[in-house]
Design a protein around this nucleic acid. Structure first.
Lengths: 193, 193
DNA sequence: TATTGTTATACTCTATAACTATA
DNA sequence: TATAGTTATAGAGTATAACAATA
């Protein structure tokens, strides 16, 4: 849901990556021309940086950029990895469950699963009790790939958080979880339009 | 860059919102048809939740969902708000600078600015020294709207972080910033094809 | 030759409506 | 009537190539 890359692998020399270096100096304002010296092109982004959403978005994009590169050899984008991992840890899970867990809409999952199935990584088996549903399972190849990818993700995690101490790392994840688990749900349907 | 909403306003009764309730109970494995009671649909997402990227993405999406709703009355999506705010705080800024600050590609900014211009919120004036560039400025209406929107964003910020103490809030932003400022840049071009 | 702003365009992601087959 | 999976499709978001004007 946060992806942004050509599906093909081939370690892109093109991909966006580096967040713009911000060194806070106002643009040559029409009148007031008093800013920090080291601002080749930097704008004053201080207000935006005071917003959680802005920072979360920037952090997520940075991490994803790294993720995309490192997962390219597996030809897995974030969602693919998430689906694969979820199925690995929850054999027999249904599409419906995957959608709920990852906040993906059913129609958008269809294609994802189909690709994984075509690649021989995922298999569908009839659900034991509900004939409408299908249980998702990993093939042997799927299990191998998922294991490798998860190992890579774990390594990647350390690199991404290399600027953080172990404690900060845990704390950051905890705080993020707090935010998205508690965030005042958009009151779906509360609008007496 | 992280948006996801129809441009039209009208407080959506449809928008995605609530992150899936996760109550960690394995899916009914191939054989065992024994679901925990409170696991209507919950999958084991523990590994994904151990990843910073996953948590950052989820948090960002949650916040943006709220943002979209609250900014709907102003007909501003996150990027629009960012551009407007950047111009407000940096009168005379050029498209190039906006792009650098927000990590937007120039071709994609054109349409955004044009819309804001058509709405009478933004004006372009010739750059004082560079005849190629154009300085962006807010009209009176633009300033008013930006002020209102920024006030709303500030209020929103408090709601979003309502689960956090003041200290946690600051800490979270600091940690996120640390991550995306330090994240090992994807070494563009480091790949000896 | 490099850069600003731009057009055109392709590809991906996200969302809705509507259908089927089961429940 | 409601739900699981699906199709088709519309709409944002994101990316590249290429051009004119200027530096």
């Amino acid at each position: 849901m946060l992806d942004t890359m050509p599906s093909s692998s081939s370690s892109s020399t093109t991909a966006r990556g580096r967040p713009p270096r911000k060194t806070a100096t106002l643009a040559d304002t029409t009148a007031s021309g008093d800013h920090s010296p080291d601002a080749d092109q930097g704008l004053d982004t201080r207000y935006l940086e005071s917003l959680l959403g802005y920072n979360a978005r920037r952090a997520a994009l940075s991490i994803i950029a790294v993720f995309l590169r490192r997962m390219a050899p597996f030809d897995l984008r974030p969602v693919d990895f998430s689906v694969l991992t979820l199925v690995a840890h929850n054999p027999g899970a249904t599409s419906r469950q995957i959608c709920a867990a990852l906040d993906i809409l059913p129609p958008n999952l269809v294609g994802l699963v189909r690709k994984l199935e075509v690649r021989g990584l995922v298999q569908r088996k009839p659900h034991p009790t509900d004939r409408r549903a299908q249980g998702l399972h990993l093939s042997a190849a799927g299990k191998r790939l998922q294991r490798s990818a998860q190992a890579e993700a774990t390594t990647l995690e350390q690199d991404v958080a290399s600027a953080l101490s172990r404690e900060e790392h845990d704390q950051l994840k905890g705080l993020l979880r707090k935010v998205y688990l508690h965030t005042p749900a958009p009151d779906i349907g509360s609008d007496p339009g």
